[in-house]
Write a protein that binds this DNA or RNA. Sequence first.
DNA 1: GCTGGACCTTA
DNA 2: GTAAGGTCCAGCA
Length: 950
Amino acid sequence: MSDQKRLFLVDAYALIFRGYYAFIKNPRINSKGEDTSAIMGFMNSLLDVIKRERPDHLAVCFDKGGSADRVEMFEAYKANRDETPEGIKTAVPHICKILEAMHIPIMVKEGYEADDVIGTLSRQAEKEGYKTFMVTPDKDFAQLVTENIFMYRPVFGGGYETWGIPEVQKKFEVTDPMQVIDFLGMMGDSSDNIPGLPGVGEKTAKKFIAQYGSMENLLANTHELKGKMKEKIEAAKDLGMLSKKLATIMLDVPVTFNAKDFELEQPDTEKVVAIFQDLEFRRLTDNFLKTFSVEAEVSASNPSDNATGKPEVKTTPKAQGAAGEGQFSLFGGDPSEAIEHTPEHVRKTAENTSHFYQSVAPGIGTKLFLKNVMAQTSVCFDTETTGLNPLTAELVGIAFSWEVGKGFYLPFPENRDEAQELIEQLRPFFENEAIEKVGQNLKYDIKVLAKYNIEVKGKLFDTMLAHYLINADMRHNMDVLAETYLNYTPISIEALIGKKGKNQLSMRSVALEKQTEYAVEDADITLQLKEHFQNELGEANTQKLFDDIEIPLLRVLAAMELEGINLDETFLNSLSEQLDKDIKTLETTIYTAAGEAFNIASPKQLGDILFDKMKLVDKPKKTKTGQYATGEDILSYLAKDHDIIQHILEFRALSKLKSTYIDALPTQIEPLTGRVHTDYMQTVAATGRLSSNNPNLQNIPIRTERGRQVRKAFIPRNEDYILLAADYSQIELRIIAALSKEENMINAFKNGEDIHASTASKVFNVPLDEVTREQRSNAKTVNFGIIYGVSAFGLSNQTDLSRSEAKELIDTYYATYPKLRGYISQQVDFARDNGYVQTVLGRRRYLKDINSRNAVVRGAAERNAVNAPIQGSAADIIKIAMINIYNKLQDGQYKTKMLLQVHDELVFDVYKPELETIKTLVKTEMENAYKLDVPLDVDLGTGADWLEAH
DNA sequence: GCTGGACCTTA
DNA sequence: GTAAGGTCCAGCA
């Protein structure tokens, strides 16, 4: 280093914040209960700088009162920043006292930020021949760098890096450090609320700097830009210039660099040590004395050994194992490089958020916990198990939380009997009607506990269901919700048990401390989400839907899933054998016709054979990826001319049947129960419908003769039972008739007419008994088209009609049912005005694209606006029916069980002696679930299998 | 082993 | 034209 004098200017708040957040997972709290993390963090780094660099001149700069100028320019400036944490506010007076005792000058100017003070002082010092080092992690300072002014930047892993001109040039891809201002102005800085140019991030900003050099030059040449970018930037020129101003550090603060005042002197050791001892800093006292080359003479009453007299810090065992006091290097101790002086933009995790998660020891610990938990009115819980199948999953532990940031974890013994003993102790909690149970996807936990013969009673709050009602179009898994609403990234399950598949571990094999951290975090987060969603439910006016529909339905679904359905495996196996033969025969026929063997199931290979080799058509249609399209609609068009196509279609149909249903279903039989247990998803369909998976029992074939054989495999539990299928007749058309108040349609339903025939009769102007099959079929297509948001194009694709015939049919249709047209446009208008549509029960679907400039996108949103309330209202109604029927079956202690729901159909396993009662019960409840201006009609069928019941 | 596309099943 | 889930292939790792 040259003999040039060196000045160090410390950006106080940046280091205080960084220090505070570095200790966040293990805050330093002394015996008086003071949080001293920020003080310790700051002092550690200050001493570190002094020890390393031995500066001749040093000052610490603070902000005061914010930047009046910048706020005047832009009122949102730094408005994003959260309230300064309490631990920092209380730290500042202590730090000032220490600095005074150390004889280090504090530079602060009312109405200016530390950046401006440091900038001004560094320029003044430069003129007097000093080298200045700005001690800060904040990248904004890079604009101040000159030949004699450097950034002295703490880096991850400990130590510092010095940024001179070459480093800044490289880092920001600029030629002159002053261009950092343009760079920041372009990309903006969300932490300081510098808006930046719209659509410009780091990459684009660098590109613009390279190309135009400055904000001014870019804005003067926007005509060279293209497309959306051009529009956006041209519209935001003022914003660009404002952003640049906001990003500019001021160099004319009324402060004076007086070399004499800034000289680093010997501190008032006694005073400093007194303050440190008062704060209970032992290691730091040592460190301080060593730094200033004074004999370490620490009194015997304050041993420097941090193993004794360590302040009581309440955190998890894991967090307690973290860096000990004094050994902690502020910049090396925390893996979160993102921690700068803008902590509100740092994603929170268990690592940097204070929490108190404790595992509960057996015996007295459990007793104490029980006493505690029973005294609560609302508790969040989350079960940890050995797997995802609730029927076979064993409890590994249960996490509980009823206070934000705190929670307990009850590990379960592997031995089943011992586990049962433990859960028995919890029975009074779970079966307590007065304690609300909160959870994420409670259906799972309820099912797991049911296998331990535990019923979860009392009010329920499921955060996943809550969010589904708040915005059904989003995803609702806990990790996403935590990140969206709490700015918190939970520990991933993969971090614990590995990626799924090959070597995934069981939760059982994870160390207890990790189980605790993970499980209690989930409960804690879920509790926090609950507090968040509780208010939003009221705002969205969906509280009733939550309390009266989705939450009660959760228990109904859990029961249906646990029940499962009996499957005739032998029958499916024999079907499989027949199919296998037929498929093989078809294969041979196809290969012969094609002249070679190939994989018929590969659309790519099939397309090549049909259209390249055999040249069945002149201009084959291609898919969007450039392959030949071989979908059902295209092939069946060719089928009448080419036998091979007929065979291929049959091959397709049979293979699908075999692989998706006949061979797949038996593998889904749960060995434990001998039955098939589907999983109903309550939060995936945007309209409010359920969905079913593993296996999907809502798409079992019915249309073709061979397909519907699969339904014969669904049978009652034994010969004392019979299957009952109850389905709503035309529920969606009834709903649209009622909602639109279209009397012609309402009357047809009231008169019990066949609605499609009735429509055909009116549209084609023929007597009802003279309607042809084709006319009825076309009328049926239009009826459905209306529900889906009809267009002439879609209709002509769906029928044998031409585009103009289709258009004419639609026009006649609207003339027949005049109020339907009005209803449809009214729905679309409502969506445009409100951004959402809703069902009869107020279930909302938000349609963000309803005002899109893109006609295709907007058209899709408009069809949603029509369809969602209809499909969703039908879903609402059958949900009500399910809840009411379930409750009646429970109350009446019937042996009959509800097994399946297929959107407009319910399937029951009916105890034969109860059949007549149940038939009446089911029909009554379904038809009276919701009162419309149109009667609801339910068809019942019974049989020894699902096909026969139809 | 995972992912996207094509295809097919239901209401 | 609405709403879903499952299987297979093919391309990529």
